[in-house]
Design a binder for these strands. Sequence first.
DNA 1: CTTTATTGATAGTAATACTATTATTTTTGT
DNA 2: ACAAAAATAATAGTATTACTATCAATAAAG
Lengths: 226, 226
Amino acid sequence: MQELLSQITIKVNEDLFIKNPDSSKLGRRIISNSIELIEEIGFEAFNFKKLGKRIGSPECTIYRYFENKQKVLLYLTSWYWSWLEYKMVFATANISDSHLKLSKAIEVLTETVEQDLSFSHINEFLLNRIVISESVKSFFTREVDSDNEAGVFKVYKRIVQRVSDMILTINKDFEYPHMLVSIVIEGSHQQRHFADHLPALTDIIEGKGGISDFFNRMVFKTIDVS
Amino acid sequence: MQELLSQITIKVNEDLFIKNPDSSKLGRRIISNSIELIEEIGFEAFNFKKLGKRIGSPECTIYRYFENKQKVLLYLTSWYWSWLEYKMVFATANISDSHLKLSKAIEVLTETVEQDLSFSHINEFLLNRIVISESVKSFFTREVDSDNEAGVFKVYKRIVQRVSDMILTINKDFEYPHMLVSIVIEGSHQQRHFADHLPALTDIIEGKGGISDFFNRMVFKTIDVS
DNA sequence: CTTTATTGATAGTAATACTATTATTTTTGT
DNA sequence: ACAAAAATAATAGTATTACTATCAATAAAG
């Protein structure tokens, strides 16, 4: 997979940047350092001044790439979902058994991510951690409707649709496939966050498995396959 | 219930305020206007200057009640969870059938809220909307650990524990009760938000029912009761 | 090797989040 | 009813944040 992916560039919605960060060395430095910095200090404390200091450029230079820090987060999460869609499609391709296929998809969506060296300037391991603890902020804002209209959530929605279709293949009468899938995706993030910070709200232990198993069970039971 | 509740004051964790807003007319005005203002303009745009203007007091006066706007949000959500715990305990009291009891609890947790006149200065309908669209921000912050240590999430955790116990009464071997309950609570909020803003991620239609039914089904199927 | 695009240096503005000081009003105890 | 104490208002001020403008320096492209 590594060789294959190294030939591929992930294209992110053009509304999210002013100048494509993938088009220059500085742009890629902005991305890789954003990931590290957000992961270190959290999105609230993250700003272009600190990022500029880290990469040795004034903040106005970063403003030539991104309108504001919210767009950076949207860029990162959009990139992540495109990357994960690719992984999911790859992992489920040519599986004829529909149960196994769905199970594999759920695993990709709920497991944590290891470092992937295909995209040198993006640390997928850290990006996964950012998505877990910060991405929810990108759709609980007042801009959600305009962002959505601009197509920012297109890939995310496509992932949900893909897995929904797998569910409908197994049970064509199930009425809530999108709901179930978005609960799996967001729920798995939330449970990992809880495991780290509010263990009373979960039953999984940090570092140990269990998340994928749980969601697999939940999905198959709920769509009623005996 | 109205008469009973009117005798009761909901006590909120003392770490959340400097001066108890429930102890003065101005304090109660701060609370009721915070609810209205946050619901109107969103938590991001909400600040003490705007709130002060609205209630005709300078911002420094509000700072004598609350350290910052995050504490106001935590105060409101804490209040909400205490209120909802009360409603839930009341709605499930004296039900001996454990299935019915759990079902009733899920309904209280996932249904939207009507205006309740028991607490004159708090608009529970608006507060429920705030909890749906803003409360997630209170545990996805860098302060989550210290807030948790201060006991801010105590009532929320107790609700999860109560419903977990109901689940264990039905199936004592179920391994993930807390996880399932927190997914139900947060999931129902998220799905309502999606219905409003990202309908492709859900199957429910705004205003129509379905949420409670879905989560009821999901829970009973997942804990494996035939 | 000159034109054009990109980046850096410097500076500045408006808004936000919060604090300090003192005057005024309200509440409380007697 | 009145003095003492507490709460609130008025005013002002600081540090940080988010963002913009201008122009010089550097790098890239034709």
